[in-house]
């Protein structure tokens, strides 16, 4: 059974979203997502300044097995990305909610409020 921290919000495409301050959000992939991917060996990060759309691909996560798109859970502008993942892609498996954060986005608070809460996400993955 995978971890779904109660204080985070979630997308149906298996990203978690943490509010840093209203309007600024940190994004990563869920424990459930990393389990499905298997061992991650490369992450193509979204670029700072890049405009992204909710539910559109903004990067790539490569596991040993397969390449998977990384989706943005919100529309907005990328304001930071976790450059340490370039040398430590395994952090997505080992610590998906902390060291494995992927990018930060400036987005609308109303969109954030529409995301799934932990109970709804847990329900959506059948756990």
């Amino acid at each position: 059974m995978s971890q779904v921290p109660a204080q985070l919000r979630y997308s149906t495409t298996h990203e978690w979203v943490a509010q840093l301050v209203p309007g600024r959000y940190r994004v990563g992939i869920t424990d459930h997502a990393q389990e499905l991917l298997g061992d991650v060996v490369f992450v193509e990060l979204p670029q700072t300044g890049q405009a992204v759309q909710a539910e559109a691909a903004c990067g790539v996560i490569e596991s040993v097995k397969a390449a998977s798109d990384l989706y943005s859970p919100l529309s907005g502008e990328v304001v930071a990305s976790n450059a340490e993942l370039t040398d430590n892609p395994q952090w997505l498996n080992e610590d998906p909610y902390d060291k494995g954060w992927i990018f930060e986005i400036q987005a609308d608070e109303k969109d954030f409020a529409q995301l799934l809460d932990a109970a709804a996400y847990q329900n959506s993955i059948g756990e």
Partner: peptide, 11 residues
């Protein structure tokens, strides 16, 4: 069985 936790560790 696809893996038992980590494909890399098994490899």
């Amino acid at each position: 069985p696809l893996h038992y936790g980590s494909q890399l560790r098994e490899h």
